[in-house]
Simulated scan of single mutants.
Amino acid sequence: MKTANFLKIMMLFLAIGVASCSSNSTDDGTGGGSGGGGTTGLTIESDKSQVYTNTLVNFTVRDASGAVVTSTAVITVDGTPIAGSSALLSGVGVKNAVATVGTETSNTLAVEVIAPSFTTKALIEDYTGAWCGWCPRISQGIIDVHNSSNGDDVIAVAVHNGDSMAFPLEGQMRSQFGVNGFPTGILNRADRWSSVSGDAMNIQQPLQLLNAVKPVGLAINSSVSGSTVNATVKVGFDIEQSNLKLVAVLLQNGVVASQTNYTSNFGGGSSLPNFVHNDILKAAFTDIFGDAIPAAEQVGGGVYSVDLSATSSGVNSSDWDIVAFVVNASGEVVNVQKASVGSNKDFD
């Protein structure tokens, strides 16, 4: 009898122990709250971590499970609540964003507001030829742009066709950018340059491109040895970028050759026997549509540097220039720089 009672007591203790272990095994903290090993609390994110002043930043708030709860959150930037989930950040410095939902408070998210470092410049690619009677319209337009305020920040490249100055890859370039006639001016590899008459171009169109702030800038340092130009091109980044490419080309100036003329520019006349051709595209240091900039180099505050070389007969430091520019994933020019061969042009 005692043995039977003892066995019953032992069975009771074992049952209590099993039940106790089973209850504890479900208390692993995965249901939320501050205890256990699960994810807890709110998080706030932004679509940009570094911006220029007066830039709109969008915030997203998530709960402990990762679900978006932005619509129910109150977001403050430097302690001031914002309307909705977007804020126009102004003033250089670090802005701190925090979100609350009920009694829960998120992490503090820092967004850096910076001032632009680089001058914005623009590119005109002039598809031209000495045989083209209307081409002096764009030649005159480039002169008029350069004579305007800040006009030197608009950089020209003359892509010749069907004459002694023709660039070997101009056919590929025409195909890429949809050039079907001469003259054609392409601005920043994106827009057609408009004329206002048979003699004149819309001067304000390229100048207006200088008003946009650009996140990258360029520097060029070069030397010439015989017929070879060696150049170090640097790309500086204010803000992290992606999918950018670098294009660098060699230009010749001061070539005197006859130019057909249907305009009233340059004194008029159907032929200009002593016409001075400038900005002639002669050679490329890179693929004419761009060499990829390594993704790891496109970091805010960083500088990408590459050594390049190109060869052309007659090259010298008085009549030749280097033009380097960065294009985005769509092939559009982001920013551009120009320097005389044999000179050192720093970021500006």
Rank of each mutant, 00 (worst) to 15 (best):
K338F: 15
K338E: 15
G300R: 15
M11D: 13
D144G: 04
S194E: 12
V216F: 05
V229N: 03
A310R: 00
S164K: 05
N230D: 14
L210S: 06
G178R: 14
S223F: 05
I293A: 02
G300W: 12
S318L: 09
A200N: 05
G181K: 07
Q204V: 11
S330N: 13
D28P: 03
L251C: 01
I75G: 00
N221G: 10
G301Y: 04
G91W: 08
G32D: 08
V323P: 00
V341I: 15
A212S: 15
S225D: 07
V159G: 03
K245V: 10
N230E: 15
G301S: 03
I288T: 08
V315G: 01
P183H: 07
S305K: 13
P206R: 01
G37V: 14
E297M: 07
S222M: 05
S242E: 10
I124Q: 11
V306Q: 07
S117H: 08
V92G: 02
N274Q: 04
I293Y: 01
D287Q: 02
A73C: 05
G38K: 00
V101Y: 01
R189Y: 15
V196L: 04
S20Q: 00
N274W: 01
S343I: 14
V341T: 15
S195H: 11
K8C: 12
N274C: 01
A67T: 07
G331M: 07
K282G: 13
M10C: 14
V57T: 07
G36S: 15
N180Y: 11
F182P: 12
P273V: 09
D307Y: 07
F347K: 01
G38L: 05
S222W: 02
L12I: 10
S22Q: 07
K95S: 12
A4Y: 13
I16S: 00
S148D: 12
K338I: 15
A284M: 11
A219V: 08
K345H: 14
S194H: 10
N335Y: 03
P294N: 06
S71R: 13
S271M: 09
C21F: 06
P215N: 14
L123K: 11
T39Q: 15
D126L: 12
Y304C: 00
L14Y: 09
A15Q: 04
M173R: 11
L88D: 03
M201R: 09
V276S: 13
L308D: 04
V333D: 07
T100P: 01
V61T: 11
N316K: 00
S90R: 08
Q50P: 02
